[in-house]
Design a protein around this nucleic acid. Structure first.
Lengths: 328, 328
DNA sequence: CTGACCTCCGCTCATTTGAGCAATTGACGC
DNA sequence: GCGTCAATTGCTCAAATGAGCGGAGGTCAG
């Protein structure tokens, strides 16, 4: 019964490997099955069956990367109404993922070869990262724009997203191994002096692209879509004060009111994140936000004049345009 | 010049969307081009051209997931010689990535539905994580087996790898937000009392699978393949002492000698990682290691009796078997 | 307005391909 | 040794497909 050394790969792997080889010759090199059969010395029927097997057994998988439909008309309307460089609006029946894919394609276009991209946090940005077409471009630099927060949902933290994006693009990744909020301005200053952290924040000045979500505070008591609120950085009293100041949403750690005024500059004194002033210097600031609950916040964020490009969906865009006469 | 609202998606997206729809009907639903043409009310030639376009423009992408060839004979020989549950050996001309894919497939098989997998650090483990077939199984738990180290190369740190793996499997991810090594046993104890860290280490006892690399110290002066050495945890004097004790490699943070004895138990007193005793209780400990420089270390690690499954390549396996008469 | 140029479309015909069937092979139990 | 069953192989013929061609429509400079 001593089996010793049976060369039993005569059939298994020989076969398994064949399916892969055949599939590559057929799909990649576009040979006909007859040519493949001749080349490998097997019958064309075997080639066909190998190919069937390869597909049914998952050896070859077919993926679709078609861009979701866009509503260019609405996009242009948003551009003009809010003085944006680009308004990208997903078509009528788009879901969150369609918006994320449009944003990912947009970012992919912006990053020609190389380039430096800053990345924020949030579930919206997370979807964009996951929809990003894979690359292998070490010339790209990913820069985390705000510190981390462990209380955010899985895979929405800025550090995690920067890591994912770097992995996906094959890019260098510059993270901030520190919390987004600390107790005092002194601690913040001390952290910013840390060489590892300073190496990342020093890159805020040379970003080509920044990718952000827009946080909406929403009515008190409801679950906020804002990662700033979810991050647990703000005590109840802070939040009450912000609401009193008219805050309706946030960009990263910076709350703003309906007119796009940043209402709580002192919050920036306790947070480790890119400042609004630095953000204004980024050539292309791309915000992704959709959902009727975010309409007010998006309008406020655009009024702040920080954002160049907005990616959203049709219902949101229509709601943003509809209130032309009213409000502000 | 006021463009207002031009429905100019009559051509672009209508076309782009068509390519995707046609591709799905053709590849997924296996309709013939003639059937597709009839269904969409276009000519079969247009279908063919749309399909060509979809492939050349990258709307459809074809991926291959064929398992690399294995040498079952060598695998069985390794199993018997080293008393393993499984020896998985990649075929003759396999590269590092082929070994990683074999390991990934093996782990994927082990994780039927659900299950708890512990993950170590290192570039080898990193390749396995990246080769892992994607899933979406929230029933799986990823457990980081050792603390983080910022001095490891990009994407080889245990925290990063746990995050990547969790993302890839759609699984829950339990990380250790602490360094792998600290200055004193007291600090270690304090950290282990932290609820967040304790929540992860508590899972060491209920792992189904552990995925490890094997570190090889190699001759002094050469670049070590061991992530333990690279992690910068050991001062020069520590290293000299370990070498003196006969250490030739490591499992996670635990150095061992050629006979598989763990030579420096006190190192565990300063490190945040699964212990050898805990590791022994894991039903399936899978080690991935290949390269002639690692042969001695692998043999030592197997002698320790912690490892159940070894994944390697043919040259390494042959070298491991060749020294049967000599040495130990 | 006109002609050059370009892109996209549908057609014909030769080639490639798939469905279904019959022959072969190999494993296994008796 | 031999029958049985399942899996695999190769075949025929009808259907599906690709290459290349000429025409329709659209754009742009002159």
């Amino acid at each position: 019964m001593t089996v010793g050394r049976i060369p039993d790969e005569i059939d298994g792997p020989a076969d398994a490997g064949l399916a892969g080889r055949v599939a590559r010759l057929f799909f990649d090199r576009q040979l006909t099955k007859i040519e493949i059969a001749a080349r490998l010395g097997i019958s064309r029927f075997r080639v066909a069956r190998l190919l069937d097997h390869a597909r049914s057994s998952g050896v070859v998988r077919i993926e679709y990367r078609d861009a979701p439909p866009q509503d260019h008309g609405l996009g242009r309307a948003v551009e003009q109404r809010f003085a944006l460089a680009h308004g990208v609006v997903a078509g009528a029946d788009a879901d969150d993922m369609a918006v994320a894919r449009l944003a990912a394609d947009y970012v992919d276009d912006q990053l020609g070869r190389g380039g430096s991209i800053g990345i924020a946090w949030g579930s919206t940005v997370g979807r964009v990262v996951r929809a990003m077409p894979a690359r292998d471009d070490p010339g790209i630099d990913i820069v985390q724009l705000a510190g981390s927060s462990t209380s955010l949902d899985r895979g929405t933290d800025a550090g995690d997203l920067a890591l994912f994006l770097g992995e996906r693009l094959g890019a260098g990744c510059h993270r901030i191994h520190a919390p987004a909020f600390v107790e005092s301005a002194e601690l913040r200053a001390a952290l910013l002096r840390q060489p590892e952290i300073a190496a990342t924040t020093a890159r805020f000045g040379s970003l080509d692209v920044a990718l952000l979500g827009i946080g909406a505070f929403g009515p008190p008591g409801t679950a906020p879509s804002s990662s700033l609120l979810r991050s647990g950085a703000l005590a109840g009293t802070d939040l009450a004060r912000l609401t009193q100041l008219g805050a309706i949403g946030d960009l990263l750690v910076h709350p703003f009111d309906a007119d796009g005024r940043f209402v709580s500059p002192e919050l920036g004194q306790r947070s480790i994140a890119i400042s609004i002033a630095e953000l204004r210097r980024v050539p292309s600031v791309i915000a992704v936000a959709n959902g009727l609950a975010k309409v007010e916040a998006i309008r406020g964020a655009l009024a702040a004049g920080v954002i160049n490009v907005l990616v959203t969906d049709a219902p949101t865009a229509e709601a943003m345009l509809a209130t032309r006469g009213s409000g502000r």
